[in-house]
């Protein structure tokens, strides 16, 4: 028996919006610690890892570890039927072949339930090692989204370079080239507007912009985004989900042959 009640149901709607274009089918894993997902995109270039901790739910009952295969397009269709202020409860029976999403309006005068068929998904679970990153950049998520969107009108790939001067995003294409440099700044009024750079050593990596643009669909989940980078390793693009968890996107770099 599984029963997870999320008062801020809009978070789940936003999570689905953030990942449904990157991943088609995925297993949601439910355990004592929380509700999580790990999935690669179809071309195996990016990986998404979601965690919603059990303590972030108003009610969290998970009698035994359960892995539920879901088609994210279909799940998103169902969650779109929930109001933004609705409380969402996810229910499933052990060994069942369906999951139920229950939506309650804030005033409790409307209750809906949507049952979705589960599917068997054969997916490989990857171990992500703890890494000391060469550079970690925290910046406003809207700013990062803007840069990725702007640069993708010029080129297909971006070089992200972190140095003591700041973080530089560079691209080039048929019509020309572009560089955007963000320097560290400290905002007295609002921490969310800060760009903070922690650098142990300079790092420069090349990535496909279309994946980064896809990750920025998570912008609505958090005012800030963190980019963690090390030489010749995947970048981690992390959005914290208020009080409950995070969504992390890992993107493999482009490396000289």
């Amino acid at each position: 028996m599984l029963e997870l009640r999320l008062v801020q149901g809009s978070l789940l709607k936003k999570v689905l919006d953030a990942i449904k274009d990157l991943v088609t089918d995925a297993n949601f894993d439910c355990s004592e610690s929380g509700f999580s997902l790990q999935a690669m995109d179809s071309s195996h270039v990016a990986l998404v890892a979601l965690l919603l901790r059990s303590d972030g739910f108003e009610h969290y009952r998970c009698d035994r570890n359960l892995s539920m295969g879901m088609n994210l397009t279909n799940m998103s269709k169902m969650l779109k039927c929930a109001g933004n202020d609705d409380i969402i409860t996810i229910k499933a029976d052990d060994g069942g072949d369906s999951v139920t999403f229950m939506f309650e309006s804030p005033s409790q005068d409307k209750v809906s339930d949507f049952e979705m068929k589960l599917m068997d998904i054969d997916s490989e679970h990857l171990g992500i090692p703890e890494t000391e990153y060469h550079a970690i950049v925290k910046m406003p998520s809207a700013e990062f989204a803007r840069i990725c969107r702007d640069l993708s009108t010029i080129g297909d790939t971006v070089v992200i370079s972190v140095s003591k001067d700041g973080v530089k995003f560079s691209t080039s294409g048929d019509i020309g080239s572009a560089n955007v440099v963000c320097r560290q700044n400290n905002s007295v009024d609002n921490k969310d507007n800060e760009t903070v750079i922690e650098m142990n050593e300079p790092v420069s990596l090349t990535f496909a912009l279309r994946y980064l643009n896809s990750f920025t669909k998570a912008t609505t989940l958090s005012n800030t985004v963190t980019l963690s980078m090390s030489k010749e390793l995947p970048v981690v693009v992390e959005y914290k989900i208020a009080e409950i968890g995070h969504i992390r996107f890992y993107l493999a770099p482009k490396i000289e042959d």
Partner: peptide, 14 residues
């Protein structure tokens, strides 16, 4: 020419 790497190259299957 830079080549796109696969993500599974960096992580091990568990």
């Amino acid at each position: 020419m830079k080549k796109q790497q696969s993500i599974s190259r960096f992580f091990t299957a568990t």
